[in-house]
Structures are given as structure tokens and as C-alpha cells.
């Protein structure tokens, strides 16, 4: 399965690690389905950034789709 990418430069930095977020492939899941997506992540602690537009846009659409499956 191809990896969807939602990476874009961000001014958010990981506070405890004091580092920049970097593109990384991570697994997200809902209703038993797992997707590999590329997101902005803190490379040391793994904090994943989900920006507002992604949460309310594409991610919400996929959630709805899975709920209707």
C-alpha cells in the first residue's frame, strides 16, 4: 500500500526534546484499519503533529468512510 504524505514545514518544535519536527512514516489506525502515513514527527520522542486542517479534513473524511464500512 502506498504511503500518503502530509508533511509540510512547521514552526512547531518539540518542547521537551527541544528539536525540530521531521517527516517520518508512522502507522495510524481506526476501526481496525491501519494506514502508514508520512507526518511531521519529533525524531527523538516520536510526538506526532496532526495539524488542524488535516484533522478536520482528510483524516475526518477517512474516519467517516471507515465508520460507514
Amino acid at each position: 500500500m502506498s504511503t500518503f504524505s502530509f508533511i509540510s514545514p512547521t514552526t512547531w518544535r518539540c518542547a521537551p526534546c527541544n528539536g525540530e519536527l521531521q517527516p517520518e512514516k508512522v502507522n495510524v489506525s481506526y476501526m481496525g484499519s491501519i494506514f502508514t502515513v508520512e507526518l511531521m514527527v519529533c525524531p527523538s520522542c516520536g510526538f506526532v503533529l496532526i495539524p488542524e486542517d488535516l484533522a478536520l479534513g482528510k483524516m475526518h473524511a477517512v474516519e467517516q468512510l471507515l465508520e460507514d464500512k
Binding site: V26, N27, S29, Y30, V48, I50, E52, A55, M59, E63
Partner: peptide, 8 residues
């Protein structure tokens, strides 16, 4: 904002 997708 919120989402239901589960993060690692």
C-alpha cells in the same frame, strides 16, 4: 480540534 484516528 479533535480526531478519532489513533496515533502511535
Amino acid at each position: 480540534y479533535s480526531h478519532r484516528m489513533i496515533l502511535p
